[in-house]
Design a protein around this nucleic acid. Sequence first.
DNA 1: TCTCCGTCGCTTTTT
DNA 2: GCGACGGAGA
Length: 766
Amino acid sequence: MSDPFDLAQAVEPVSAGAAPGGTVAVPPYFAGLNEAQAEAVAITEGPLLVLAGAGTGKTRVLTTRLAHILRSRLAWPSQMLAVTFTNKAAREMRERVGALIGAAVEGLWLGTFHSNAVRILRRHADLVGLKSDFSILDVDDQLRVMKQVIEDANIDEKRWPARALATLIDRWKDKGLRPDMLDRDEAAGFAQGRGGALYAAYQERLRTLNATDFGDLLLHTLTLFTSRTDVLAEYQERFRYILVDEYQDTNVAQYLWLRLLAQRHRNLCCVGDDDQSIYGWRGAEVGNILRFEQDFPGARVVRLERNYRSTPHILGSASKLIAHNQGRLGKTLWTDDADPGEKIVIRGVWDGDEEARLVGEDIEALQRAGHRLNAIAILVRASFQTREFEDRFLTIGIPYRIVGGLGFYARREIRDIIAYLRVIHQPDDDLAFERIINVPKRGIGEATLQAMHQLARHERRSLYRVAGTLLATDELRPQVRRVLGELQASFERWRAAAAQTALPVLIATVLAESGYAEMWQLARTVDAPGRLENLKELLSATETFETLTAFLDHVSLVMDNDAQAGGDAVNLLTLHSAKGLEFDTVFLPGWEEGLFPNQRTLDEGGLAALEEERRLAYVGLTRARQRVRISYAANRRVYATWQAALPSRFIAELPPEHAEHAAEHGMYGRTVRGLEDGAAATPSPGPSSFGRRFGNRIASGGAVAGGERLSGEIDLTPAGEFRTGMRVFHQKFGYGAVLAVEGNRLDIAFEKAGRKKVVDSFVAPV
DNA sequence: TCTCCGTCGCTTTTT
DNA sequence: GCGACGGAGA
């Protein structure tokens, strides 16, 4: 692997600032901060790492710090950059800072890495080969492009799936690596050494689409900063103070990005907790936070260790557990709470059904004791685990909500209609156009699309434009031509209307005139009414947007999980999406070897992966304010078959003085006998099916399909070589003679098919 | 172009 | 055990 820090080496290290630090008078908003918190707020100058343990008042410190800098007139809002990972976190911060200092938050650069990057990139898009109205692809689009690239390279997509390539490329982008920066070993990682070439082809394709994916937003800004020092200098000068939340989750690209921006003023404050780094599998580098003091010489480190959230028993358990990890910066959470609270309860159960039943009973008991369901959460390792609980809760009538899951904008009907809007906004958005060209069904099928693609590639124009050309020919069947013509006419109409129509009205028009709404009205599936509901919801959600562009930007960046506020309900969510949240009562089911820690993760990532799993357990425990109930089942259904399972190793890492096994049900005992019946006697159910398949992919050799792609010769036909009288061949219409040439359109008398107008790229001279 | 059927593959997912 | 996807046939 090449040194991911190549880029950094081109950059001066951020040196120690002579930090004046501290403030003179103590402003009122310092009241109530503990000593460490106050320090984290007051040290405004120079690099600062705030190690904020779970429940130590991190958000409060962040917002107070922001307010403090603004109040002290150290910087104008427009000179501050505050970066979060989620839109939700950004929103919360904006609200809380707003509450502290009022309207001055206007002008603050507060947002996610991605939204801040877009803001910069739109201004300078031309410098990295994009137009400023570039579109931001979501994962689906990304995958579709990837498939095209793989297909174009004549690689068998079965053997080398687009998914895998996408992951590979994403990881490169996470590291800040452009195609030209890969070293040989890395580039050879896919389809017998063609990974690097495919990456380059993919980037090229995105450029012609005037599009970026998520990783590009950062990568392109990095390119911009390193290639144009004048632009970089402008932003370096502007951002006097930079604040970063959840620093343990930054990837290399983000690190480099921050490092470049912070270079001038050196006032970079990063807040994070190495023990809560759980996104390594997505390219996050715990190393960033571990290395902070080396990266930024002279950095100060403040530890927030006083916990205001959990009971001593919970804290004691969490601390003991996480102590099993190596390579931590080390913190010890403490609380001066005199009441130790309830011990953590650990329960072994027979199977998933019993587990769900038990949790259900507990919740009912809590409910009777006056606890609110909103304050109860069930945190699972994998989302499919929620199903058993849902089933049970439906049966016994406990209201619940799934937190996370498919976000509003990820739903099919919403994506479809957004595709319509994207085409209205940017007719050249091929991916969007392709998505809806036959939705609802118009009879425009694969064959038509194929022809359009061929022509589009040949003429280097978009599908939408090409459609216009084809409509003037006999290339398409009359039926298809009519329908496509109507569609295009509709788009022209909508586009003309877009400028002076309110967004909800525009969308309603599109829904009605495209037949899309009707499609769902006629559908007699169970989900149809819900989808129509969602579309209605979209209408009201768009009311607040001034322009179509503003809305589309919002959509690409804010794949918000609409906070299903609702009434009082139990929360079902994954451990990953629980980070940053807290609940009175937390249930942690499924603590079994193979499931948690997850076997596949272990297979792929070894010790580092195990430690990340442990951090996940730590995150789970520290979500709880008052009580934690852990459970493990002796038998777990994995896909079709029953697997025997052993308790998670993490259970043994919980200290008996803080965590106790509930009285034996006698149920778990049966397991052991069950085990002897010949099922796997090894601890983990996992490695059997999971890991192996991945191995196959690497082991098996040749791709290659090739040969059969039609019409290489047609693609190669140079333009303008047709003359009147020339004899030609057309795939569909057969042989004929050219009667007239009008630009790229030919008027041809075919021997069998009669007189037709066709596009020259579909015709070969003979 | 649509529909039916067999095969494959199965974790987490802030943007 | 289930859904997504691709190929074959109507």
